[in-house]
Amino acid sequence: MKLPESHSYDVKLSFKEGRKGELSAAGISETIEVATPPQFPGGVDGVWSPEHLYTASIVSCFFTSFAAIADYSKLDFVDLEVESSGEMNRNEDGKYVMNKVILRPVLTINDESKEKKAYRIMEKAEEICLVTRSIHSKIIFDPSVYISQKVE
C-alpha cells in the first residue's frame, strides 16, 4: 500500500476555564485536558501540559515506529516500557526551549539470540521517528533489553 505524499492530523483545542483547554480530534473518542504547567504562574497541577505532550509525542512516535519495525522484522517481544524525560531550559536569548528529551526504552524478549537484533530495531525506530526528525531538541537515546525467564 502506497501512502499519500502528505497527511493532515487536525486537532482542535476548546477553552474550558482559566488556563485549561481540551484537545480533541475527529475520529478519536478521548479528549485530553491541557493546561499551563504548575511551574509557571497560573499553572495547574495534575493536568497534561504542552511540555508533557511534546515529550509524549516523541516517546509515542518511538513506540509506533518500533512496533512497526518489530512486526516487519518478525521480532517477538514480551514487553516494552519507555520512560522519557523532556528538559526545558532558557536559551541564550532567555527564552524557554525544550532542549533535551531522554528516551529510556526497556524491551523484554524471550530469545537471547535476538538481543542484538532487538537493539538494532530499537535504534532504527529512534532513527526513523518522524517526530524526532522534525524537532530541533537534542534526543538522548538510552535503550535496554531484558531476557525474560521462561516459565516451564
Rank of each mutant, 00 (worst) to 15 (best):
M1N: 04
K2H: 13
L3Q: 10
L3I: 09
L3S: 08
P4Y: 00
E5F: 10
S6G: 00
S6Q: 13
S6V: 13
Y9C: 10
F15Y: 12
K16N: 07
E22C: 05
A25T: 15
S29R: 09
S29D: 05
I32C: 08
I32W: 03
Q39H: 05
F40R: 07
P41T: 12
D45V: 09
D45H: 07
G46W: 08
S49V: 09
I58W: 04
I58G: 03
I58A: 10
V59T: 09
T64N: 05
T64W: 01
I69V: 14
D71G: 08
Y72D: 00
K74H: 14
D76L: 12
E81H: 07
S84E: 01
S85I: 14
E87D: 13
M88R: 15
M88S: 11
D93K: 15
V97C: 10
N99Q: 08
K100W: 06
K100Y: 03
I109A: 04
N110E: 12
N110L: 15
S113T: 14
K117E: 11
A118F: 15
R120L: 14
R120E: 07
R120V: 08
K124M: 11
E126Y: 11
E127Q: 10
E127C: 03
V131A: 00
S134M: 14
K138L: 15
V145T: 13
Y146W: 11
V151G: 03
